[in-house]
Amino acid sequence: MSFQPYRSPSTGCPVRAVLFDTFGTVVDWRTGVAREVAAFATAQGVALDAYAFADRWRALYQPAMEAIRSGQRSFTKLDTLHRENLDEALRHHGIKPERVSRQTLAELNKSWHRLPPWPDSVAGLATIRRHYIVGPLSNGNTSLLLDMARNAGLPWDVIIGSDMTRTYKPLPQAYLRTAEFLDLHPGEVMLAAAHNNDLHAAREVGLATAFVARPTEHGPGQVKDLAPEGDWDLAASSVTELADLLGA
């Protein structure tokens, strides 16, 4: 008997591609960045709370993209934004970036390319991939996502970075252009994400949606995105559970 793909109640379409938010949903950015920040601090001989530094660096992510989304700045890839934000995070923690070699800072910036997957991510993606197209729908640029996939063993079928769509989520074109690149109707694409605002934006432009819980993405004191906050098509506690719900 041939496989019958999951049909989204919200779009009425059979799902052909399951695309994933990446930072926080597929990979554990906080642990990965903190690990490399700790090694940097040791090498530099400075005292630093690595997790606080990772949180500060990440907190600059949305404001940097908002300048582009609002039209105040032309499109700039995420690697460049991360590098600019690194200088600000260093200053916030009392470290003058001009006293650190450019090569050292460039290597630390690549920590976002080497993030570890959550324990269920690789197996879950591999299972879903048996019957669906899988790939990231991320604000990461293509080279970042490619390095991440190779380092973490993420079995993507396709990588369409934000430098290809030339925009950042949650603007509509971030979702719609990705579907267009795949020659799919938006309703045939499902976004899987740990962030309710991302899912809301995807739903607004006609994508199917799946919530994947990551209650420790921001550490043990996380207070947001602990549960689905919308009538998303599916809700799962892991990527492996999502695979089961999709019938993969």
Rank of each mutant, 00 (worst) to 15 (best):
A52P: 11
V122E: 11
S101H: 06
P228G: 05
Q62Y: 10
K169R: 14
P14A: 13
D49K: 10
L154N: 11
T142Y: 01
Y168M: 06
F40D: 12
A227L: 13
R203V: 02
S162K: 06
A179M: 06
W118H: 11
L154I: 12
D21W: 02
S143E: 14
H218N: 15
L78H: 00
K96V: 14
D183F: 01
G12E: 05
N139R: 01
G230A: 12
D21V: 00
T22A: 06
L246H: 08
R91F: 07
P97W: 00
L226M: 10
A201L: 10
V212Y: 02
F75Y: 14
L19T: 02
V239G: 04
R114C: 09
G71W: 09
F181N: 03
M148V: 00
M164Y: 03
D21G: 03
N141G: 04
D55Y: 08
P228D: 06
T209C: 14
D183K: 12
R56T: 15
G24I: 04
S238D: 11
K110R: 15
L146C: 03
G230L: 11
I68W: 00
V33F: 04
N151A: 14
A106M: 07
H131G: 02
K96T: 15
H82K: 01
F75L: 02
H195D: 11
R35G: 06
A248Y: 06
I95F: 10
E88K: 15
L199N: 05
A210G: 07
D21C: 01
S10L: 13
G71P: 07
V189G: 04
L115H: 03
R150K: 15
G153N: 06
L125P: 00
W118Q: 09
Q44T: 09
P136M: 04
N109E: 07
A59M: 11
H195N: 14
R129H: 12
F23R: 01
M1R: 15
H82G: 01
A106N: 13
V134I: 15
L19K: 04
A67C: 08
L137C: 12
A106G: 05
L184V: 05
L176E: 00
R166C: 14
K77H: 13
F20T: 02
E107M: 09
D225M: 08
P14H: 06
A106R: 12
P215N: 13
I133K: 06
D183A: 13
P215I: 09
V46N: 11
L108I: 03
L60W: 02
P97S: 02
F75H: 09
P97C: 02
T22H: 03
Y61C: 01
S74H: 13
E204P: 00
R166I: 12
R35P: 01
W57N: 08
P215V: 09
Q72A: 15
R99K: 11
N151I: 05
D28G: 10
G45D: 12
L125S: 05
A243F: 02
R69Y: 09
T76Q: 12
P155D: 04
A235Y: 10
S101A: 13
